[in-house]
């Protein structure tokens, strides 16, 4: 018996060591995954943006040429700003349309709320390209809207307002991205306990005041998450402008796409994409700060 204690101690030490290795292996694996699947691609991407091209060859030498090109080429900055404004417009329209829907679903739809929500989610399973073509057939010259308006005698010539321009891009993006704002907003509104809303009435709130001081602020994080989704996706989108935007619906995403796809200027494309990434991250961090602040 006398030598049992040191043996036990030894055993426990071993166990500790094994446990230590076990946890460190999992930590290692997660690090490797993050590094190999996210950081390395991002890094190579970023490093490409400092290269240049000569004809179709990529010259692997450090240069700020691409960034200079961006800052001096007026069209890039212009398109960039216009695309940001476009994404903001899409985002605000989505908020205006999506918030009331989410609010109604969360508060008044009762037992039907999940079936209605499911119907809103189903379009997300559909191919994005198909949805764009669908929008084309609705908005186009001989599309649903023009046909109906013509039949009713409201217009004589098909309206050009809906297709091959910025409006078409905005409408299409709103239709496609709307569920992405409804779902997180619904979730955060629905999570508000009923008695918290009752408490606000109990303390003297009229319905609008209860909304303003209690329901809206508590549900705000969901709205912000949804808005960021919509904004970022609208910002980087290049298929929609390609398919419904025509010539005036040129966006920043489309420029990036054409640099990779058509001009074979990968370094410049990478530089443009890096700028987009950095701006997106800044916007996310900024809104994050905003939500943190709104909590206190």
């Amino acid at each position: 018996m006398w030598n049992l204690i040191p043996v036990l101690e030894q055993y426990l030490k071993m166990r500790q060591l094994v446990n230590y290795f076990r946890t460190s292996i999992w930590t290692l694996i997660s690090f490797v995954l993050v590094i190999s699947l996210i950081l390395i691609p991002l890094g190579s991407f970023l490093s490409y943006s400092f290269f240049t091209v000569d004809g179709t060859d990529i010259i692997h030498e450090f240069s700020l040429f691409n960034y200079q090109e961006f800052l001096t080429g007026e069209i890039y900055i212009k398109t960039f700003i216009r695309t940001i404004l476009l994404a903001l417009t899409v985002m605000f329209i989505c908020i205006l349309l999506g918030y009331p829907v989410a609010y109604f679903l969360a508060r008044y739809a009762g037992k039907y709320k999940y079936s209605i929500l499911l119907m809103l989610i189903i379009p997300l399973f559909m191919s994005y390209i198909i949805k764009i073509y669908m929008m084309r057939s609705i908005l186009g010259f001989s599309g649903l809207i023009n046909k109906v308006l013509k039949m009713l005698g409201v217009i004589e010539k098909p309206l050009e307002f809906f297709l091959w321009n910025q409006n078409a891009v905005i409408i299409t993006l709103v239709v496609i991205l709307l569920p992405l704002i409804i779902i997180p907003t619904f979730t955060s509104l629905e999570k508000i306990p009923k008695n918290i809303i009752e408490a606000s009435f109990d303390l003297g709130c009229k319905p609008f005041q209860a909304f303003r001081y209690v329901i809206f602020p508590i549900g705000l994080p969901g709205l912000i998450v949804g808005s960021i989704f919509v904004f970022i996706l609208a910002l980087g989108d290049f298929v929609t402008p390609q398919l419904v935007g025509g010539t005036s619906g040129f966006t920043y995403g489309k420029i990036i796409y054409s640099n990779f796809g058509m001009a074979f200027n990968w370094p410049f494309g990478a530089a443009l994409a890096s700028i987009l990434l950095i701006v997106s991250v800044i916007i996310i961090l900024f809104t994050n700060r905003l939500t943190e602040k709104s909590k206190t």
Partner: peptide, 16 residues
């Protein structure tokens, strides 16, 4: 509710 001169302390507090 908001006109009644009563206030409630809820079961699970319902703090904002």
């Amino acid at each position: 509710i908001f006109k009644r001169p009563f206030n409630t302390v809820f079961q699970d507090y319902a703090l904002f």
